[in-house]
Design a binder for these strands. Structure first.
Lengths: 345, 345
DNA sequence: CTGAAAGCGCTAACAA
DNA sequence: TTGTTAGCGCTTTCAG
C-alpha cells in the first residue's frame, strides 16, 4: 500500500459518502451528528488511517492549543521534575507544549516572539524576565504569560514565586535565636529577585540586632564544587570568618559542608552553621543532614498552570502575582533551637 | 491603541501598497523581491507589529517545522541536560520542539499519534519503545522516528544507544582481572535492552571462567535510598555475598556505598567492589570516588539529532542504528588493576 | 519583480 | 441532522 499522501477529511467524506463538513463534525466532541453516520465515518477514517490535521484546525479556530514553555535554568536541581510536572499538567488541560531554551535575556525575547509566531495560546517562563516590549506585544495579542520563579515585576504578566522576604526573615531570626551573629551570603545569580529580597530581609533583621551583621556576600557560586572551593576562600581570612553561611542552593551548601569536613576541619554547626535552599534529596540523607528551605514546587507549578489556563480562557482577567510560603527545615547543620522558643504556645 | 486582532500579511500589504503575495515574499528568505519594496514592507510590518503566522505557513507548505519529543525517563540523572541539549540542537536547525511525557507504553503510542496530528516533521523518543503499529503509521506518513537510549529493535525507527555488550564484557573482564569472582547485578528496569545486553555479556564472560559467577540479579532498584536499603538485604545472607556489585545507575551505587559504610562495615573495594553507570558528578567527588561507566551523552544526542534531520530532509533514507562506546572509569570502588594487564603494549 | 488566483485541511455560519 | 459555502493566513504557480 503506497499511500502517497495522508488522508484528509475530504477523502474520508468521499469514502463514507457524506460531506466533508460532516466528517469534521464526527471529530468534534458534542457536535450534532447521528450515530449511524458517525459510525460510517469512523469506519472510513480507520480504513484510511485518517487523523484530523490540528494545524488546519488551529488556523480555522484561531487557537492552537499550544503553550510555549521557556526554560532557562536547566541546572536547577528540580529542572526535570518541574518540566515533567508542567508538561503533564498542561496536557491534562488538552494543551501541547513547545519548549525553548534561552540563556541571555536577548534570547528570552526572541524565543517569546517565536512563540507568538506559532500562535501559542499562552506562555510559561521559568526563571527569566521578559522585556516589557515583549510583554506588551503579548498583551496586545491577548496571550497570557506566567512567570514561574520570579516575583511579579514585569507588566502584563502573572507570576508565581516564593515569599522570599518571609523566609529571609525567618532564617535570620532562627539563626539569631541559635546565637549566630556573623552571616555570609552565597548566591548563584545576584540578579535573582528571590536572592535580592531574601538578602534585604536578612539585612533588615540584622540591622535591628546590635551585634549581628552580614559580613560577606558572594555571588556567582553555583554547585557542589563551587561551594567546596568557596569555603576555603571565605575561611582564609581569620578576621572575617562567618559563623553562619546561607546559600541560594543546596548543592552549593553540600559542597561547603564537604569543604569544611575535608580540608578546613571546621565543625558544623559548632563553628559554622550552613543553610541551603531547595531541600534536594541528598540534603536529607544522614551523612549530610543539611538545614535547608523546602520550596513547594508542586503547588507552585499547579498554581502557575491554573493561572495560565484561567488567563487563556478569560482574556479579561488581570495578571496576578502569587507568593508561596517556603519552609525552613532545621536539621543538623545549624545549632539546635533553644527549647524555650520552640512552640511558644 | 486597541488592536482587536493581530495584523496579517493582508494588512501589511494594504499599508505598504503592495499585494499580499509580495508581503509573503518579503518574509521568505531568498525570494525575488526588490530592496525597495522589501523596505516598504518591513516598515509597514514593524508599524503593525506583524509577524508571520507559522501555523498558516505550515498548512500551506505542508511541513510544520515541529519535532515531537517524547520523554519517559524523567528520573534519569541527565534528564534536564539531555532535554536542553536536544532542544538547543534542534532549534539550531530551525525546528521547534513539542514535548510530551509518557509513563506506560500505551501512553507512548497515544502521544506519538498526537504528534502526528500536529503534523510534526519528525519525532525523537527518549527511553521508550513505540509499538510497531505506530511506527508503521509513521512510516506511512514518512515521518522519521529516532529512539534515543534504545537499541534498534523496532521497525522503521532509527536508534542511538550505547554498545551495551562491549561495556558489559569490559566490566566483567576488568572485574575478573581484579580478582573478583562473585557478581551481583542491580538494575532499575529489567526490560531495558541495555540492561539485558549487559547482563548477557557479563554472563558470557563468567561462563568462560571456572570459578566466576553471577550470584544474584535484582531489579526495580532505583536511586540512592533504594541502593542503601538493598545492600543490607544482599548482605543478609552470609552464604551468598557477592564480591562485586554492578549497578545500572550511579545513584544506586552511591546508596550502596553509603550503606556499606554506615551500617554494614563492608570495606570497599577490599570486601566488595561497586560499579555504577552514568558517571554523574558526585561519583567523581573525592568522598565517593566511584568506579563507573561514562556514557557519551552529548555525542549521542548530536547523532540522534543529525539522524532525525537527515531523515526529515531525505525521506528515502533507511533507518539506522548507532551504538556508541561507553567508557569504564576506574576509581576507588574497585580494586586496582594489576600492573601487568595495564597497557599490554 | 510583482500581482492574481488557487489551494493547504479544517471550522462555522447558514440553509435546507 | 446534513450539505453548501465562505473563510482562517499563508505559499506558490502562472501571467504579466
Amino acid at each position: 500500500m503506497i499511500n502517497r499522501k495522508r488522508a484528509n477529511s475530504q477523502d474520508v467524506a468521499a469514502l463514507a459518502g457524506v460531506s466533508q463538513a460532516t466528517v469534521s463534525r464526527a471529530f468534534t466532541p458534542g457536535a450534532s451528528i447521528s450515530a449511524k453516520t458517525r459510525q460510517k465515518i469512523e469506519a472510513a477514517a480507520t480504513k484510511l488511517d485518517y487523523q484530523p490535521n490540528i494545524i488546519a484546525r488551529s488556523l480555522s479556530k484561531r487557537q492552537s492549543k499550544l503553550i510555549g514553555l521557556l526554560f532557562t535554568n536547566w541546572t536547577h536541581p528540580k529542572a526535570a521534575d518541574l518540566l515533567k510536572k508542567i508538561t503533564e499538567a498542561l496536557t491534562e488541560y488538552g494543551y501541547k507544549i513547545i519548549v525553548q531554551s534561552a540563556a541571555s535575556s536577548h534570547q528570552t525575547d526572541d524565543a517569546l516572539r517565536d512563540f507568538l509566531q506559532y500562535q501559542v495560546d499562552g506562555v510559561m517562563v521559568f526563571s527569566a524576565n521578559p522585556s516589557s516590549e515583549v510583554t506588551t506585544e503579548y498583551a496586545r495579542a491577548r496571550t497570557p504569560i506566567v512567570l514561574l520563579n520570579r516575583t511579579g515585576l514585569a507588566l502584563n504578566t502573572s507570576s508565581v514565586s516564593i515569599d522570599a522576604t518571609a523566609i529571609g526573615r525567618h532564617i535570620a531570626t532562627s539563626l539569631l535565636d541559635q546565637a549566630h551573629r556573623r552571616f555570609a551570603l552565597i548566591s548563584a545569580d545576584p540578579e535573582s529577585q528571590i536572592v535580592i529580597k531574601m538578602t534585604k530581609a536578612i539585612a533588615s533583621i540584622t540591622a535591628e540586632h546590635p551585634d549581628a551583621e552580614i559580613i560577606s556576600q558572594r555571588s556567582g557560586i553555583e554547585g557542589y564544587e563551587a561551594g567546596f572551593r568557596e569555603i576555603r576562600s571565605i575561611w582564609s581570612n581569620p578576621d572575617a570568618r562567618p559563623d553562619a553561611v546561607i546559600c541560594s542552593a543546596d548543592n552549593t551548601a553540600l559542597g561547603i559542608l564537604a569543604g569544611c569536613k575535608q580540608h578546613l576541619n571546621i565543625k558544623v554547626p559548632e563553628d559554622l552553621a550552613v543553610i541551603g535552599l531547595g531541600d534536594i534529596p541528598p540534603s536529607g540523607w544522614k551523612d549530610h543532614n543539611l538545614t535547608t528551605v523546602k520550596i513547594p514546587h508542586d503547588e507552585m507549578v499547579s498554581k502557575a498552570v491554573e493561572t495560565l489556563i484561567a488567563g487563556i480562557e478569560d482574556s479579561s482577567l488581570e495578571p496576578q502575582a502569587f507568593e508561596f510560603q517556603a519552609q525552613l527545615i532545621l536539621r543538623g547543620t545549624t545549632r539546635p533551637v533553644p527549647v524555650s522558643t520552640e512552640s511558644p504556645l
